[in-house]
């Protein structure tokens, strides 16, 4: 039997978290459940009816969806590893106390992720336009201009460069924080023991950063699966849907075409399932590595 003090403490506790719980319930939990229910509805606009697995069947026949899924996977598989490796290298370099001007470089590399999304997207769009600064520079160097916004391949490259530019510094900060928690004498011991620098990175730094690398990989995977802002602002999903992502397609389904709320909810749940699977796989890989 709980005493009165304990009961009062319980009531107090619930009262304190009630405002947050109510808001979360209205704006998160309810919409999530609603969208799950919606994903089984077919129909356009406000006329919808229960369609069972019809939406899921539609996914497999929908070439635009398959295109968006493919594009998103390409972004994921190419961009996340590049960014993680870059962020690691920057972090290790900028953790060196002997490096001149390292706080300047740290700030410079971190700064992109605090700039306005739209502002940077607009800048990228103008810089990489057919006659933008980048092509002018390339021509000035005697190279051919690159059709950044009009070629399907180069448009993907541009989007990857943009998100890498924006998010590398953000990931680097996590690695820097982790590196600064490493006892310096571990590296000194390795130096005295004659462990070469590459081996110190491979066998000491990397394993010690593994939990942080896992965390940033999961976060970046989720972020890339939801990729929307850059394709929307820089390439508008084009050319010919070369940079159309899943999130962008959901937006199109919901707001651009005759709204198909049920089907767009289904596509949203595809992202949820993908995030779940990939995160599970990443944790599994991390645990395997620990056992080995």
């Amino acid at each position: 039997m709980a005493s009165r003090v304990v009961v009062r403490e319980h009531i107090n506790g619930w009262l304190f978290i009630a405002p947050a719980l109510i808001l979360l319930g209205i704006f998160m939990i309810y919409p999530i459940i609603w969208s799950l229910w919606m994903s089984f509805q077919t129909g356009r606009g406000m006329n919808f009816s229960f369609g069972g697995l019809a939406n899921i069947q539609r996914l497999f026949a929908d070439t635009v969806f398959l295109r968006a899924l493919g594009n998103t996977m390409i972004f994921l598989v190419v961009q996340v590893p590049i960014m993680i490796i870059l962020a690691l290298l920057f972090a290790v370099a900028l953790n060196d106390t002997k490096l001149w001007g390292r706080s300047f470089f740290r700030t410079a590399i971190f700064l992109p992720c605090v700039t306005s999304l739209v502002a940077y997207a607009v800048l990228f769009k103008s810089m990489f336009s057919a006659e933008g600064v980048v092509n002018a520079t390339l021509v000035g160097l005697g190279l051919d201009p690159v059709p950044w916004l009009t070629d399907p391949f180069w448009a993907k490259v541009l989007i990857i460069m943009a998100i890498t530019w924006r998010w590398t510094g953000y990931n680097m900060i996590f690695y820097l924080a982790a590196l600064q928690n490493v006892d310096r004498s571990i590296y000194e011991a390795a130096r005295i023991d004659g462990v070469p620098p590459w081996a110190r990175f491979l066998y000491i730094t990397l394993p010690m950063l593994k939990p942080v690398i896992l965390f940033t990989t999961v976060i970046s995977t989720i972020g890339t699966l939801q990729l929307f802002d850059e394709p929307y602002n820089i390439t508008q999903g084009g050319p010919s849907q070369a940079t159309l992502t899943l999130s962008y397609y959901i937006y199109d389904l919901t707001f651009r075409f005759m709204p198909s709320f049920g089907y767009s909810a289904t596509v949203s749940w595809v992202i949820v399932v993908l995030v779940g699977i990939l995160t599970f796989v990443q944790f599994l890989v991390a645990r395997e590595g620990r056992r080995a």
Binding site: D183, S185, I186, A189, I192, Y203, I204
Partner: peptide, 16 residues
């Protein structure tokens, strides 16, 4: 340091 013929034990142990 690795070629001085020394080995060092640290206060914090510095184990991997």
């Amino acid at each position: 340091p690795s070629k001085r013929g020394i080995a060092m034990v640290f206060q914090t142990y510095a184990l991997y």
